[in-house]
Design a binder for these strands. Sequence first.
RNA 1: GCCCGGGUGGCGGAAUUGGCAGACGCGACGGAUUCAAAAUCCGUUGCCCUUCGGGGCGUGAGGGUUCAAGUCCCUCCCCGGGCACCA
Length: 950
Amino acid sequence: MSSHEPTAASTGELPAYRYTAELAQEIESRWQKHWEAEGTYHAANPVGELADAQQAAKPKKLVVDMFPYPSGKGLHVGHPLGYIGTDVYARYHRMLGYNVLHTLGYDSFGLPAEQHAINTGVHPRVNTEDNIANMRRQLARLGLGHDFRRSVSTTDEDFYKWTQWIFLEIFNSWYDTDLDKARPITELIAEFDAGTRQLADDRQWSSLTQAEKRTTVDSYRLAYLADSPVNWCPGLGTILANEEVTAEGRSDIGNYPVFKRNMKQWMLRITTYADRLLGDLEALDWPEAIKTMQRNWIGKSFGAQIRFGSDAGPLEVFTTRPDTLFGASFMVLSPEHERVAALTTQKQKAEIEAYITASKAKSDKDRADDTKEKTGVFTGSYATNPVNGEQIPIWIADYVLMGYGTGAIVAVPCGDERDFVFAQKYGLPIPAIQTPPTQWFTSQEAEPSEDATTWPKAFTDDAPYCNSKNDSVNLNGISQVAEAKKVINAWLEANGHGEATVSYRLRDWLFSRQRYWGEPFPIVYDAGGVAHGVPVDQLPVVLPALDDFKPTAMDPDDNVTEPIPPLARATDWLEVELDLGDGVQTYTREINVMPQWAGSCWYEMRYLDPTNNDAFVDPEIERYWMGPAEEGASGGVDLYVGGVEHAVLHLLYARFWHKVLFDLGHVSSFEPFHRLFNQGYIQAYAYRDDRGQPVDAQSVEERDGSFFYEDEQVTQEYGKMGKSLKNIVTPDDMYDDYGADTFRLYEMSMGPLDASRPWNNRDVIGMARFLQRLWRNIVDEQSGKAHVTDSAVDPKTAQMLHKTIASVTEEMTHLRFNTAIAKLIELNNVLTADVGVGKVPKEVAEPLLIMLAPLAPHIAEELWSKLGHTTSVTQQSFPVADESLLVDETITVVVQVNGKVRGKIDLPADVSEADAVAAVLELEAVSSRLEGNEPRKTIVRLPKIINIVV
RNA sequence: GCCCGGGUGGCGGAAUUGGCAGACGCGACGGAUUCAAAAUCCGUUGCCCUUCGGGGCGUGAGGGUUCAAGUCCCUCCCCGGGCACCA
């Protein structure tokens, strides 16, 4: 299909009022203007500027799309899939009588915008605003039922004022582990002052200096400065969060190398929420796959912290298998472990130092590559195993990471595969402390043996323990890992050797970026370098104008040069006179900016109350839209739709911020997104010529199963839509060729919303034909006037209508728009074939249009008005099926003989089982197979089936 | 390696609790309309055999449970995604 083909209107040979692309476009732009002028899709708040008490008295539905980054490339047909899905859902619920809030904002800060701006030399704001305008234009033509008054961009000063405000709330909070919630830092100070809370160490609060008090308080804050190893990406000129680094040790964006180095950075204490982030997943209606990914990322593991004696003092290790402690044969420290130097003997010194130097030189990628053989060096010292007093050698090895657990492990080679391989390589002992079952040896094709050195690998399952006793604890005879853990943990605690603990994989969130295009921190430093929050009445801290906003240009492989954030060059802005309580002083501003994720941590709440100047959201308005439906419920967005790529990053960060706001009493919901739905992706076919070059996919023709481009045969492949594959189809192409309604219908009919599917231009025509047939059933193509009848609906059609209503309702509720569309087509096909064009009763046409309205709002609105209505079809009540019409008078029972279908029989709906069987036995298809014998068995499942076993 | 999804006509995909496999759409074929084509409309279309009554086979492969399996159980193959020295 191309836009050059003659159409009805252009040739003039077709009826004047045929539903063509031109007519569709005219109808669509007319109604879009009308809806906009009427505020048809405005959602009402209970209070405030957007209040409407009558509307807000209805039940509410908050529907949110993951908001897009406004890309300069424009949209292709894959992008709106989710937006159409939520639009249909929102419109459907509006017709069910809900006060529906649906809009779309823009995540316009961040690296992609800035990279693009750097490449083109255009200021990020100019570029970003152009992109947003273009996206709004493309999306406006879709006819989305959004409340445009509520659309926000994270780069709006009005918006990022509140992002900064929330950061200050986090900065000014600490986590009270007793109450298990965040509290204002002022309350912590008050408790210290009152003496109701003691310091974690032995010092007395009252005897601390002002500076010491401040350092102590800072160590409690949920936002804190840390000089710690970070992911430094010179190619992007910034550091990155763990979540933004790929498994290959490269940047998520741009694929540049990432290096570990120490830098002073803002961190957010997300780890204090690890347990709640994990546990509260239970309260969420999310795809199980996403929950699993979050659980894995949080990585909670139960074990024990155990102290081993050594010449350099006690060494703490974390292990998930304290039950295997009797099998420990060596200990491994991370090369960065603070005790390494003290433990290294003179003899081993050279080797240890060489190893440390070598591992520092290794990139994270090399260190994390588990296909490489593990290496390590003996320190020369020994540790004492608390369970049996045994002296075990202490090694260092770079497979032990400083950032997890304690940076030290106890190695039990018979029960851990890595330890096993390491022990084999370096000839360390492998004592057995469990007797694996014979089947285990058989499945490994090995001889059963109690000598673990002969085992093919480590054994990690349940099995009876052996060689595991001392004078006061005995694991021998226990055969369950869980039970042995309990016993040994109790012993460790009782004897002061350690305690049962929990460890998490989740790290604190590294929150600063050395870039320009992000929210400035509302933080200033005094002459002593102490961080202070900017007073709330001075927010927002506006991003200063810069001529040169680029980060220091970096060689992607240069991991030495110190980065200088662009804001350091904003000399006028950098220093500020403030009175923070002890007189006007000069302060220096923080020059890092927040990461892209900041704005998306709370944007859905700004939709609720976009004009509020006193709060990020009015608590009453938040409670109305997001408050928990009942005691114990999470609250949050009713339906949140977006791609699965945000499974960890955005969704984890947003949950964290929301929980802080909840703890501080700013919101009533403890989760931001109650129901999450991942839409699939649209992919497309691409074609290459014999040189392997992609050719314009839209010009490829199919003949007899082969594909041709300008009469040359080309090969088909399947992949992402993109410039490089020359297979982009844009929404604009669809508007031109068919109109928005056909496009919407096609996207929704392709398959279930959560499945990825191939785009096929060729298939779109099917939905255009459906709308054309529907149009013709209601409108005379010559006159353009409605030609429905006032006659009564015949019983058969009435039943068809009500069955359609019942199933469309069901499908819509479960976001199964593809099957909802199929049902509507079926009904329309019946009207075309059985009732006849021009004879469709109004009584059928009207509910049909109402049901179509969420999916194809423009044509539904046009036909609705042609039927003489003056109110919008989008504000009609969704039809309700008449239960009495759903019941058939006769049932069609499938007749099986030996489980195979041999015929059907129509019987009265109230037929008895005996009569039904009798009737079935009369059937030729059955009697001929019985050959005069009695059936061995009859299974009767009215109204579905009767099975005769011969 | 581990953890999730998934495999149904030529294609996209339908199929409550196990109960007519292939809804709906595309394509293909045949017909109507047309000078002709496009567009539109009608019909046929899982595969194989058929004496045109019908018969056999069929949901990745193999096995099982059941009167009955796309659906439940076991083993395996393939595809997609996530995680991956986490102690």
